[in-house]
Simulated scan of single mutants.
Amino acid sequence: MEIEKRRRLHVISTGQQSREELVKVSRTIHPYIDMLHIREKSWTGEELAETVDELTAAGVPLRKLCIHDRADIASMKHVRGVQLGHHSAPVNLVKKDFPSLKIGSSVHSMHEALLAYEQGADFLLYGNIYETTSKQGKPGTGIENLKDIVMNTPLPIIAIGGISPGQVENIVSTGAKGIAVLSGIFLSENPLEAARAYYKAIHKEVKQHDETI
């Protein structure tokens, strides 16, 4: 299993923008991010496949693309990974039929995290850490719970949920391998500047964190 030491910045589409806007923003921000998640629940397989083509034509590398739920499209279009949720097929079945894909699993508890690990997930999205508009009415799980997940799950943990650039230090201090952002970048007034701010924050904190070891 490949576990990278450097911190990772994942950006997830919001479901609130057109394909054209998604591609336009992605073209500008991709140099500053490590993974672009296409999370569009209402799109057809054809729309997802065409979006991958449009993104690659805009210069976004296939190795930076991850499609939510649709392992078949992810495999056919040769993107890097697929992200699975509670409604998706089990991780072990997807892993068996699509061995070329990096498989992320979205989890919300220690039980779910350990189950995803046992089934062969490559990384986990865990949250929501803080309160967020995308999960209205759902309180954040908090830093201490994130730390427990990191300490007890031998997989790279990507923290998600209401994370601002100023909170990256708290996330990094837990040992999490990175963060995932939705509206903080895609729905910001200036997505490029927002992506740069997250990029600088996560890599600045990595340097400071490493120097204390």
Rank of each mutant, 00 (worst) to 15 (best):
Q17G: 01
R19G: 12
A113N: 03
H108C: 02
S109L: 07
E193R: 13
W43V: 03
S88N: 08
H209L: 09
K207H: 13
I202S: 02
D210Y: 11
E46A: 13
T28Q: 14
A195D: 04
L155F: 11
L114R: 15
G120D: 05
M35S: 11
R80G: 00
T132G: 09
L36C: 09
A195C: 07
E54Y: 12
A159R: 07
C66R: 11
A121M: 03
Y126K: 10
K207E: 13
I103P: 00
N128F: 01
A180E: 02
D53N: 15
K96H: 14
T28S: 14
K64E: 04
Q119L: 14
E112D: 14
E20K: 15
D34I: 04
T28K: 14
M151G: 03
K24F: 06
A74C: 10
Q119F: 10
D34E: 14
L187P: 00
S18R: 11
A116H: 05
L146K: 04
I38N: 00
E112Y: 05
H30T: 09
S183K: 06
H203L: 11
I185F: 05
A197T: 12
M35L: 14
L146I: 06
T174E: 02
I12T: 04
G178I: 01
E193K: 15
G162M: 07
L48Y: 06
T141C: 13
Y199T: 02
K96D: 12
L48F: 04
E205I: 03
